[in-house]
């Protein structure tokens, strides 16, 4: 069991999201940084879809009431086990009674805590992700609070064998994902790109935009030089996607993220390449980003390369596990 001694800013149970229900207005949810989430699961021998904790900026205090295998991937929120700094992007054996705490967020905004066996909350519509607004999924449909006790799913024989190892036995770490202070985000022109005036079409790919305070799992509101349509247009609502960049009447773009609504009526100036979504999700309020144009074909190629790389990482982890057991 995981015992929450302090809640932190916003800690939620997330998997890779709810698929197939957007046509009913049910949002996808899921990890904001799916790459880090997947790798954390692979490092503890889980299926990459297993439910993990998404920890935001100020982390929680968690006590482990049994021997467990964990991995922390994503932003570096200065994690400590029983007061000792602990490594990220690696497999860790944690003894019963240990306490995990977090300190200053150094790089990135979100860290994923995966645990062998996964967080064992009931699946709702095929997913364990927390849907805060509808109060379903995750742990009782809400962010974690002090006193919550989260059940852990059954570990496999191999996971159980590894749990018996000491904390420092796994002298092997994955290359951490690189998050940047001022990232360049690759973006495809959006469905309504050509409705924008010439000036806006140039500026979106040349100027810096700042993440505003009004940013959360639903979307990041960016501030910069305002963007405008050639002529005002009333659009008919249609589906949006993870990474759609909408521009409402005030001219400030909004990047839609994991908890986006299923449909929207604002013109979309762009669509962030899926491989670059983690770079945005890991930004903190006040940080800047720039957009760089990429074609759909290139963005798909990058995605396929990333999937191949994850496949290789998975194979490498399996080899290591065989070595360790």
């Amino acid at each position: 069991m995981l015992k929450i001694l302090k809640s932190g800013l916003q800690t939620t149970v997330q998997d890779l999201g709810r698929t197939g229900f957007q046509k009913y207005g049910v949002i996808a949810s899921g990890a904001m940084d799916p790459y880090a989430h997947r790798l954390a699961n692979l490092l503890v021998g889980n299926n990459e879809q297993a439910a993990a904790l998404e920890i935001t900026l100020a982390g929680p205090v968690i006590e482990f009431t049994e021997d467990v295998l964990i991995a922390l991937c994503g932003g570096d929120l200065s994690p400590q086990l029983d007061g000792e700094a602990v490594g990220t992007w690696r497999t860790l054996a944690v003894a019963k009674g240990s306490t995990l705490t977090f300190g200053e967020p150094r790089i990135g905004a979100r860290c994923y805590l995966a645990i062998a066996g996964g967080i064992d909350v009931p699946a709702v519509m095929g997913s364990r992700s927390t849907y805060l607004r509808a109060r379903i999924g995750g742990f009782q449909g809400r962010a974690l609070e002090k006193g919550d006790e989260l059940p852990i799913g059954d570990a496999t024989q191999q996971q159980k064998a590894l749990q018996q190892h000491g904390e420092n036995d796994f002298d092997w770490q994955l290359a951490p994902a690189r998050y940047f202070e001022e990232p360049v985000i690759r973006m495809m022109p959006g469905r309504q790109f050509n409705l924008f005036d010439e000036d806006s079409k140039k500026r979106i790919f040349s100027e810096a935009y700042t993440v505003s305070a009004n940013s959360d799992r639903m979307g990041y509101r960016l501030e910069g030089s305002g963007l405008a349509l050639k002529t005002p247009a009333e659009l008919i609502s249609e589906a949006v996607a993870f990474g759609s960049v909408q521009v409402p009447a005030d001219g400030n773009p909004i990047v839609l993220l994991a908890d986006r609504q299923t449909t929207g009526g604002y013109p979309k100036i762009g669509q962030v390449a899926s491989v670059d979504l983690p770079l945005i999700s890991q930004l903190k309020q006040g940080q800047q980003l720039r957009f760089k144009e990429i074609s759909v074909a290139d963005a798909q190629q990058r995605w396929i390369e990333q999937e191949q790389s994850i496949h290789r990482i998975k194979a490498a982890i399996q080899l290591k596990w065989e070595e360790w057991t």
Binding site: T19, G20, F21, Q22, K23, I236, S237, E238, A239, A241, T262, T263, V296, A297, Q300, W303, I304, E307
Partner: peptide, 22 residues
């Protein structure tokens, strides 16, 4: 196909690019 979302005048189809490109 992973899912689809019908709207007023459009149907958006979500897919896995590892199985089929645009």
């Amino acid at each position: 196909m992973t899912e689809f979302v019908p709207a007023f005048v459009t149907v958006s189809v979500f897919y896995d690019p590892c199985l089929a490109l645009y």
